[in-house]
Amino acid sequence: MSTPVARPRVAVFKFSSCAGCQLQILNIEDQLLAVVGAVDFAYFVMAKRENVPGPYDLGFVEGAITSTEEVKKIKQVRGQVRKLVALGSCACFGGLPSLKNSRTQREVEAEVYEHPGAICSIPAAGIDRYVPVDGLLRGCPIDTDELLELVKAELLGITPSLRTHSVCMECKLQENPCLFQTRGEVCLGPVTSAGCGARCPSNGRACHGCRGPSDDPNARSLAQAMWEAGLTREEIYRRFQLYAGDTQAFQEGGRLP
């Protein structure tokens, strides 16, 4: 496997997460060996035992930051990588773990552990709260096509083409009937970033916003439509809170005037 140029060194780090986005890296079965030929996975603990210290050219971070130890760790990681990519919605926006942020930490800890004193947890946040980030791969989980697009673009030295318009546009391209208009199912598609191919609406269920806000979203207007559809304020808040509740756009949606 001789390569004319040195393969970029790639690292994959795990923070507070379910490991599903790392698994998506291994889930590119048909292209995995080609990718392994083009990049050097120098650090990827879930997949290998011999992991080499940095620096690395490209770092993928999975998971939200939920402890003071992780704050230190993400700063160390930033110092080790040339480009840092948030892998999945937890690393992008805090993701689903940020659901706990609406209650006090002490309350949340005592709910699960006998000895909460041993647990050092802080409100869940995306990694960009603590360090500069060079790229986002959205989704819960990430989309494998977007991952491949980003890796290809990095190898070619160009900007990856990641679509951040709304899911509605992809949904129309799939020729799905609108679930909101035809079935009255409240859908976050109008304000959620595309790139998934409108996966959920294409499978008969509404978008729940797992990819976070699209470009220039009008969450307030969508909240108004939800209100007119008969949802309570609390229900509207919950809809926007699920995967990216701490982003400004979804907070605006969740706060109906």
Binding site: S67, V108, S121
Partner: peptide, 25 residues
């Protein structure tokens, strides 16, 4: 790091639970 699923499930609507718990793993 703990993510406190059992704590933040409290107060969610039952229809959301399968989608939320899927994210445990």
């Amino acid at each position: 790091p703990p993510r406190f699923f059992q704590a933040f499930l409290k107060g969610r609507h039952f229809t959301e639970v399968p989608e939320i718990t899927s994210r445990i793993c």
